[in-house]
Design a protein around this nucleic acid. Structure first.
Lengths: 145, 145, 145, 145
DNA sequence: GTGGTCTAGACCACC
DNA sequence: GTGGTCTAGACCACG
């Protein structure tokens, strides 16, 4: 499970953490019944304050993706995969919608926006820029890519 | 000059003002050599705080779209039209690229992302429809175990 | 002795253990002079951590329901039955009083609260039905403006 | 608008604040369109840290009771009264249900619990114990009780 | 002035 | 060890 945080992104760190874990659940990298890394561990590995991670974890709980197991940690719920898929889609839809709204606000035509989007889609696909990735302990073993 | 400002949009008001004026220049509605209204007048007309307008004008100046004329006000520069066209496009490209990067980070395939984008493009076209969205930080109800 | 422990109940496990044993004493299932199982045995039987059982036993001792007998274990005291009856009642009274205080703080009328209480009493009787509840800290979706 | 916090209650301060404001909206003391007190003001008046109040306000926002008005504060939404009524009811139901569940867990009979509840309801009604109330600025004037 | 984010560190309950 | 709450104070964006 790779976590990738960007400190100079407009989206706050705790939301990035929520997104990363939601995506990991949606992708099947975090299965129901497994424990997500502890707040303190994640904080150390992501080099952020534990409070920031705790905030993300609480949102995940209220999103129904994890549930507290007292004394053990936060466990991925049985309904998590299905919910994560829906939430992942909603997160992306929201981001795309905001971008398109801004495009329309600048009075670009529908065709121009569509063309721009398809161009950017190609560009965003290929070049993975330098990213500070952090390895995190996984529930089930898996080869590093 | 027509302005469409929304106080409850995620994009800040001063950015909306910058965008609207940039668009007007790009569309040829504001030609080089003309004076834009004074900060006070614009603020009164748009019913926003003068500070907000001042901030927008300052950004327009640093973008090279307007330049101060002593005693007369802010004048649209000669290079404004070409710059406005480029800037408008760049802003939108950046936004779209960020959204697509996040989509790829979620391990969706290129095809899925493209489909989502085209769907959202259609939806974003409609003027602020009432839609039931979920954001990252927003919670969904959960059953008691 | 039958135990009904729930790891995902809001009431902590050690309190559940205290409650169950207190009930058993109140009901006459555990008579004065009998020995309760050792911490190790109870922990094994209940599949909980020995520390948790130890904590429960310590509370039972401070409640005067059991007393240590050197080399034999914890013995149910002579006064246990009467105390258990009183304690059980007091605990419940306290909980109910707190809940009612909060209800009054919300400016509901006495009649409304009574009706709510009687409804909930019926519902609480059923064994953990699946209900769609909203808690204070839980969010409800909101439309985009 | 009277706020009443208890620092030695099992329910956390931020939840108490959420409850108090939700109740105020439900009771009509906070009408749609008015601004709730600012985070800093409320914190000062309740003698808690601004972060604690901010947490409560964010929950109120995600509950759809208030919405941010940039630069002005948090405004009570148009749908707030109806939502507050429902949420108030749910908060109280949750608390009562937990209390009753505990009563059943102690194997009291339905009749015994009902009788206990009705007794406690009477007791909780009358004696308002010493409470540290804090006056908070209101939107519309109102005589002190 | 407003709210939002983050770091820092303390203290607690539970297991 | 785990998560949860709270205080403290810094910094930022916005109006």
């Amino acid at each position: 499970m790779l976590f990738h945080l960007s400190t100079d992104s407009p989206v706050p760190i705790y939301e990035q953490i929520v997104g990363q874990i939601t995506f990991a659940v949606a992708a099947g990298d975090l299965e129901p019944g497994t424990l997500i890394p502890s707040v303190r561990d994640l904080a150390q590995q992501l080099v952020v304050h534990p409070n920031t991670v705790a905030r993300a974890v609480q949102i995940l709980e209220s999103n129904g993706l994890v549930t507290p197991r007292r004394g053990r940690g936060m466990e991925v719920t049985a309904e998590a995969p299905q919910r994560a898929l829906r939430q992942r889609r909603e997160i992306i839809q929201t981001r795309l919608r905001q971008a398109f709204r801004e495009a329309f606000a600048s009075h670009l035509s529908l065709d121009e926006i569509r063309q721009l989007a398809l161009e950017e889609l190609e560009l965003a696909r290929l070049p993975l820029p330098e990213r500070d990735t952090t390895q995190v302990r996984r529930a089930t073993p898996r080869e590093t890519p």
